[in-house]
């Protein structure tokens, strides 16, 4: 009997949701097991790093790599798995665009370490020790993987064959991808797979009329009308700037899309796309007779209701955005 192709699922800086999405294949997981040798997944299986190191190069047919790169360890595992895999797939929004871990890129590494380990009410750390590679103690040295200056997404470190978006990817889309891989009929290298090429709005069945909004409204402020486009009701629904493929479960549940499938095909910066879209549907009312500074003031007070545009619009893609994070000091 020929050996089944090997499948690995690895997590770097991630939450574990991508593994849950794999487990959510439910009974299909048996089909997966029938077709593939699911042999490495620290969340679910007991294989160790040394077992991977012992494999010949390219021994793994497919690795679904989830998580962003936050530490040296993440980088080491990315390189190891690249070497050992025929196909390395950036699996989920952390590996594809940085996702939540990459929101750290709105701060400097120094600020992060200080607010977690030093300047924090629940921390007592008089000698100001922060995890940074090797730290010496009387009993000996301790080595912890150091933080990178910035959170990276996978392709910033190693060559990536395909991308699967989603936070986490929808299970039915994971299955679609597995089927495509098993069929051997693969799309061009570098493609984003397990998704569509349009936007979430195309999959959302809410009625859309003329988009003009007179104020932004947030989830806690009101109960949105269940059939009308959420954006038209003033919610910052990111469906217009987000790739489709999920089936719009969020808007079906009366919640705005937060953009987890990332920028649509052909758009490089999801945040810029959202700014462009919202900037053209904001309605600040009749401005005849107002001075230029009064008009600017109206716009500013309209915008003031949202406290964190960068966090909102780059929630899933900051690492892969145009700037990638804060500029230098």
């Amino acid at each position: 009997m020929t050996e089944k192709p090997k499948l690995a699922v690895y997590w770097a800086a991630s939450c574990g949701g991508c593994e849950i999405a794999v487990a959510n294949l439910h009974e299909k997981i048996l089909d997966l097991d029938a077709a593939l040798d699911f042999m490495f997944c620290p969340c679910l299986l007991d294989t160790k790093k040394k077992d991977i190191e012992a494999l010949p190069d390219k021994a793994i047919a497919v690795t679904l790599f989830n998580g962003a790169l936050r530490t040296e360890e993440n980088v080491e595992m990315a390189n190891l798995l690249r070497r050992k895999s025929q196909l390395l797939i950036a699996f989920g929004s952390c590996a594809k665009g940085g996702c939540i871990p990459a929101l750290a890129n709105l701060s400097t590494k120094e600020d992060l370490l200080s607010s977690v380990y030093i300047d924090n009410f629940s921390v007592d750390n008089p000698s100001g020790i922060t995890p940074s590679g090797t730290t010496s103690f009387p009993e000996g040295d301790i080595h912890l993987p150091a933080l990178l200056e910035r959170v990276k997404h996978l392709v910033q470190e190693v060559d990536v064959d395909y991308y699967i978006p989603g936070c986490p990817p929808e299970s039915h889309q994971i299955w679609n991808v597995i089927e495509v891989i098993l069929s051997g009929d693969l799309p061009p290298k570098g493609s984003t797979i397990g998704c569509g090429n349009l936007t979430v709005c195309d999959d959302c069945d809410r009625t859309k009329e003329e988009k003009r909004i007179t104020a932004f409204r947030r989830n806690y402020e009101f109960y949105p009308e269940p059939k009308v486009c959420l954006l038209e009701q003033g919610m910052l629904c990111m469906g217009i700037a987000t790739r489709n493929g999920c089936g719009a479960p969020c808007t079906k549940a009366n919640m705005p899309c937060t953009g987890c499938y990332g920028a649509p095909e052909g758009v490089s910066d999801q945040g810029a796309k959202m700014v462009a879209a919202l900037g053209s549907i904001m309605d600040i009312g009749d401005t005849t007779g107002l001075s230029e500074s009064e008009i600017a003031g109206r716009v500013d007070s309209f915008l003031a209701t949202i406290p964190d545009y960068a966090g909102q619009f780059y929630k899933y893609t900051l690492a892969s955005s145009t700037l990638g994070g804060r500029v230098g000091r």
Binding site: V275, A276, L278, G279, S280, M282, I284, T287, I295, A296, V299, D300, F302, L303, Y309
Partner: peptide, 9 residues
């Protein structure tokens, strides 16, 4: 007007 709104955001 769109330019201003985008720019401010």
């Amino acid at each position: 007007c769109r330019a201003l709104q985008r720019h401010s955001m």
